[in-house]
Computed example of a mutant assay.
Amino acid sequence: MNATQWPAMVVTLLAAWLVASQNRRKRNWGFWFFMASNVLWIVWGWHAQAYALIVLQLGLLALNLRGASKNEPSVDGKSNT
């Protein structure tokens, strides 16, 4: 279980790379990869009894959900804010 931190780190770095893209589709994938990394960090945090990390990842998960929804095109063509 301790090895979970390594895939979590790799997925987090990949997500950051994708979110920085100017391509909407790549950014969207980045948010989903960030959410996967949040889950991996929560699993590792639970094993390590790192409860502050778990709370942080839950907050970041909520922000990533928001980011993914804001990345979608709006119905009226205006930017989502």
Rank of each mutant, 00 (worst) to 15 (best):
L61Q: 09
A36N: 04
V39C: 13
Q49Y: 09
W41Q: 01
A50M: 07
R27H: 08
G59K: 05
R27W: 07
A48T: 00
G45W: 00
H47R: 13
Y51V: 06
L61H: 09
A36F: 09
I54G: 09
F33E: 02
N28Y: 14
G30E: 03
W32Y: 14
L60P: 02
L60W: 00
V55P: 08
W29T: 13
I42C: 13
L61Y: 08
V43K: 00
W46S: 15
G59I: 01
Y51F: 15
M35L: 12
A48E: 03
I54H: 04
W29D: 11
S37C: 11
V43C: 08
F34I: 05
N28C: 11
G45E: 00
W29L: 12
Q49K: 14
W32T: 10
L61N: 11
A52K: 10
F31Q: 08
L56Y: 07
W32K: 03
L40G: 03
Y51R: 14
G45I: 05
W46A: 15
I54M: 15
A50F: 08
W41G: 04
L58I: 04
L53M: 11
A52R: 11
W29M: 12
L60H: 02
G30Q: 00
W44G: 07
W32S: 06
I54L: 10
W44P: 02
A36W: 07
R27G: 05
L40Q: 02
W41T: 00
A36D: 03
W41M: 10
W41A: 06
A52W: 14
G30D: 02
A36H: 05
G30P: 01
V55C: 12
L40Y: 04
F31E: 06
A48F: 05
G45P: 02
F34K: 13
Y51Q: 13
N38V: 02
Y51H: 14
L53T: 00
L60Q: 06
G59W: 03
N28F: 14
H47Q: 15
Q57F: 02
V39F: 10
Q57M: 12
L56R: 06
F34Q: 14
L53I: 06
G30Y: 01
W29G: 11
M35R: 05
L40C: 06
W46D: 10
V43W: 00
G59M: 06
S37N: 09
I42K: 03
W41P: 04
F34E: 11
W44E: 02
L56H: 06
G30M: 01
L56W: 08
H47D: 14
L60E: 08
A52I: 05
H47E: 15
A36S: 10
W46M: 13
V39H: 07
I42A: 13
L53W: 00
Q49T: 07
R27F: 06
W32R: 07
W44T: 06
N38D: 15
F31L: 03
R27D: 05
A50C: 07
M35Y: 03
S37T: 03
L61V: 04
Q57S: 07
I42P: 03
Y51T: 05
W29Q: 08
N28S: 14
Q49I: 07
A52L: 15
W44H: 07
W29R: 08
W32L: 13
A52S: 15
M35E: 05
